[in-house]
């Protein structure tokens, strides 16, 4: 299996506006919004990149 890409969620507030768009759109329900912190479950995430596109301000990157 190819190694997984890395997902970066910038949730320090520089980009992220804590709107929850990524949380709601995640088909595996593995992104969590806790006030001003967004985390995701590395093990569940398949890097489908839907959250990258859903983020209105570009706070989620994949490489």
């Amino acid at each position: 299996m190819p190694s997984k890409k890395t997902l970066h969620i910038e949730s320090s507030g520089q980009l992220c506006i804590y709107c929850g768009a990524c949380v709601g759109v995640c088909p595996l329900n593995c992104i969590y919004l806790d006030e001003t912190r967004i985390t995701f479950d590395e093990k569940i995430c398949t890097r489908c990149e839907i959250c990258v596109k859903a983020c209105p301000v570009g706070a989620i990157e994949i490489d």
Binding site: V23, G24, Y32, L33
Partner: peptide
């Protein structure tokens, strides 16, 4: 619990949406 809707999913109710059925808004 709004658009994020985690509680329903934890309970096993499907609230998944396709990419055609969501708008990203600003």
């Amino acid at each position: 619990d709004g658009f994020e809707s985690q509680v329903g999913r934890w309970a096993g109710l499907s609230t998944n949406i396709s990419t055609r059925d969501m708008d990203s808004c600003l």
